[in-house]
């Protein structure tokens, strides 16, 4: 399998504190790569560097596309999603709570719709070309809502959904930008076992059917071990282990990082 993402010597410092220390790893196409580690290991900071919210102190991050590799450092802010096609979700869900489920999914298709609406001009004139494009966007939203079983709640406010559904909605909203790489920040946090299982199914679907690479931060080991193809273990900002899920389970370094050293 070819590489999708290469992180090379990534370092992030806040003042004197080194949150990520010279981290390198690869994530492959059509694979789920999990980043695990104890609290404060620097997992979310890695995400924030990848998705343009922080500017790393040092190091490179490359995304491999058909046209060649592009450096994520060059893109900041909204361009990561818009140009580089890296999507993400957040540890504490960030939906648009007062907007409907459908509207949430349409905002994710904002850039295409803006062009289709002629930067609002065609839209104001109510041209057919725009209305058709809008219908396509709604169809795409319906496609995803069917998958997560929320079609009948499409017109309700996103903030009124149960917690588990909000998590799933946030993931499919990210999928609506048609990303190359999907970064999920603790998607299973707060889910019950049944919801966790559904999440696993959804992620596997995204991986196999949508051919989208997934980078996952997770504490829930049933999720990590159940679906990861590759695991990267961080502690104090350093990579201490890298391998398959089974190798990780038996790794001495990993057990020490989580349980401490027996002396």
């Amino acid at each position: 399998m070819s590489n999708l993402l290469s992180v090379e010597n990534l370092t992030m410092q806040f003042g004197g504190l080194t949150a990520i220390d010279n981290l390198s790893f690869d994530a492959k196409n059509n694979e789920i790569t999990s980043i695990i580690g104890p609290n404060g290991a620097g997992k979310t900071t890695v995400f924030n560097c990848l998705t343009g919210f922080y500017k790393p102190t040092n190091g490179q991050m490359f995304l491999h596309k058909n046209e060649g590799k592009i450096s994520l450092r060059k893109y900041t802010d909204f361009k990561i999603a818009h140009v580089a096609k890296v999507a993400r979700t957040f540890q504490n869900i960030r939906l648009f709570p007062a907007m409907s489920v459908l509207e949430n999914l349409l905002v994710a298709q904002h850039n295409e719709l803006m062009v289709a609406s002629g930067y609002s001009l065609f839209g104001l004139l109510n041209l057919k070309s725009y209305r058709d494009k809008e219908q396509l966007a709604v169809d795409k939203a319906r496609y995803w809502l069917d998958i997560i079983g929320l079609t009948n709640r499409a017109d309700d406010n996103a903030g009124d959904l149960p917690y588990g559904d909000q998590r799933k909605l946030e993931i499919v909203r990210a999928m609506c930008i048609e990303p190359k790489l999907l970064c999920l920040d603790e998607p299973a946090a707060g889910l019950n076992p049944k919801e966790s299982a559904e999440l696993n199914k959804l992620l596997k679907f995204i991986k196999t059917e949508k051919k989208t690479g997934i980078l996952l931060i997770e504490h829930d080991m049933s999720v990590v071990m159940g679906i990861s193809d590759h695991v990267v273990v961080l502690n104090y900002g350093k990579k201490i282990f890298e391998g398959t899920a089974d190798q990780t389970k038996t790794s001495k370094e990993v057990i020490e990082a989580y349980l401490g050293v027996d002396e």
């Binding site: 999603a81 818009h82 979700t89 509207e103 904002h110």
Partner: peptide, 14 residues
């Protein structure tokens, strides 16, 4: 309206 609700989420959606 999305910006009013959550600017960070907006950025993450491009």
């Amino acid at each position: 309206e999305a910006l009013r609700e959550d600017e960070i989420a907006c950025k993450s959606l491009g």
